[in-house]
Design a protein around this nucleic acid. Structure first.
Length: 174
DNA sequence: TATTCCTGTCCTG
DNA sequence: CAGGACAGGAATA
């Protein structure tokens, strides 16, 4: 993401504890545009501001339906309706994110398999980079991407959260 | 198993 | 515009 998204002046967001720690959820007029996880509320807000440098963040999404659905998803509940996602990124990143969306809960894929799926079989490492750039945790299931040898590898918001998400979906790791 | 090299994309100076 | 960082993977010894 070279330049700032030409987002509207005001981006409503909400910040609250969840089963995975603290979650920050921001919504645009097109859907949820950020789901960030962490431990510290202030740090999360800083990260949100870093992702949307031109947006003036406004804390007021607490009663927003989309934000509520996103938080339900983070807590492991099925959202009442399909959750609209507004994931901004480069063309390459969106191809990776689309591929991730096609992995059902309880299943996983290796970075190499994803690279193959999007037609860039030698770009496995770039795929990992795109996963790390995923702005919408859980909604785009980048936690279902594993290394070819089955190892958990890494997770932008902590390997422990990745392990917890996979365990919730029925996959357990030592 | 550990080391080394190759890899594509994105960010920063 | 160049250089470096990286959630990988394959080849090598």
């Amino acid at each position: 993401m070279t330049h700032a998204p030409a987002s509207p002046e005001v981006t409503p967001f909400t910040l609250r504890p969840c089963s995975l720690g603290m979650a920050a959820v921001a919504v645009s007029d097109k859907g949820v545009c950020a789901i960030l996880l962490g431990d510290d509320a202030d740090a999360l807000q800083d990260e949100l501001q870093r992702r949307f440098p031109r947006a003036s963040l406004r804390r007021g999404a607490d009663s927003d339906n989309t934000a509520a659905a996103a938080l339900a998803l983070v807590d492991g509940q099925a959202p009442p309706a399909a959750l609209p996602v507004d994931a901004r990124g480069t063309a390459f990143q969106r191809r990776v994110w689309d591929a991730l969306q096609s992995i059902p809960p309880g299943r996983t894929a290796s970075y190499a398999e994803i690279a193959d799926t999007i037609g860039a079989p030698t770009a496995t490492r770039a795929v990992a980079g795109a996963c790390a750039a995923n702005p919408v945790a859980v909604a785009i299931p980048c936690h279902r991407a594993l290394r070819s040898d089955g190892a958990l590898s890494g997770y932008r918001w902590g390997v422990e959260r990745k392990r917890a998400l996979l365990a919730r979906e029925g996959r357990n790791f030592p």
